[in-house]
Computed example of a mutant assay.
Amino acid sequence: MNPLKTAIANQQTALSEFQSKRLLSAVGIPVTQETLVQSAKEAVAAAKFIGYPVVLKACSWQLMHKSEQGCIELNLTSARQVQDAYDRICEKITLPLEGILVQEMVAGQRELMVGLSKNSQFGVSVMLGFGGIMAEVIKDTVFRVAPFDRVEALDMIQDLKSNPMLAAFRGQQGADLAAICRTLIAVGQLGLTEDAIAEIDINPLIISPDGSIKAVDALIILQRKDSL
């Protein structure tokens, strides 16, 4: 079933990370390989299938700030570490969970963030910026009103003050600009075609050393019923 329709049917105010990334993947946005599991045994099996290292995350549409609540375990390299991490997460979280997300560990020193918002004055607006721990300090972001084409998406990239970091950088290949453009356009189209979506937040969108990109975390907020 469509994750957006499922969320609406369940009267959720947001999509979980797993639901959000399923929806993004459906419109062609690259996301992490991941599996939603319900037990430590399933987590170990999923980690073996995905390949180490992996990340474990608590998954719930009510859980919007996972890192602040200590429910993310990074760089797990063995079955024992996965099992212990699963148990620790379950002990910390008291709200209902959709499950535990077992996710590939994506390497990359360069991080972007992509967002979408809606308002009565500007309509659907797409944001691109540099993400990661320095995002709030650098504050390097650009905006465009959707819909727009590849030329305008490229303009967004060029308008970033830090855009030289997207070229070949310290032995890493240049970022796949075409994939970034497709992601920006797809986010805008999703906001235009789905009235129920109020906001989209992809952060981080990691650029791997080979230049490919993947959405490592994502959140989709739904419109309040009284605003539809």
Rank of each mutant, 00 (worst) to 15 (best):
residue 27 V to H: 05
residue 218 A to L: 12
residue 163 N to Q: 11
residue 186 A to V: 09
residue 50 I to H: 02
residue 56 L to W: 04
residue 226 D to M: 13
residue 123 G to N: 06
residue 190 L to V: 07
residue 88 R to P: 02
residue 75 N to D: 12
residue 6 T to N: 05
residue 29 I to F: 00
residue 220 I to S: 06
residue 7 A to G: 09
residue 2 N to K: 05
residue 216 V to Q: 00
residue 141 T to R: 07
residue 139 K to R: 12
residue 94 T to A: 06
residue 152 E to Q: 15
residue 40 A to N: 07
residue 73 E to H: 08
residue 31 V to F: 10
residue 49 F to S: 13
residue 164 P to G: 04
residue 203 N to K: 07
residue 71 C to H: 00
residue 222 L to I: 12
residue 164 P to I: 03
residue 1 M to F: 04
residue 144 R to Q: 13
residue 140 D to Q: 04
residue 200 I to K: 01
residue 91 E to Y: 07
residue 46 A to G: 00
residue 221 I to D: 01
residue 2 N to E: 04
residue 125 S to T: 15
residue 193 T to L: 09
residue 126 V to Q: 08
residue 124 V to K: 11
residue 104 E to G: 09
residue 70 G to T: 03
residue 133 I to T: 13
residue 211 G to H: 06
residue 63 L to K: 04
residue 154 L to C: 03
residue 224 R to S: 15
residue 34 E to Y: 00
residue 8 I to D: 02
residue 75 N to F: 14
residue 27 V to Y: 04
residue 164 P to A: 05
residue 20 S to G: 13
residue 161 K to H: 07
residue 112 L to H: 09
residue 184 L to H: 03
residue 28 G to A: 12
residue 165 M to F: 10
residue 88 R to Y: 01
residue 171 G to A: 10
residue 92 K to M: 08
residue 198 A to G: 05
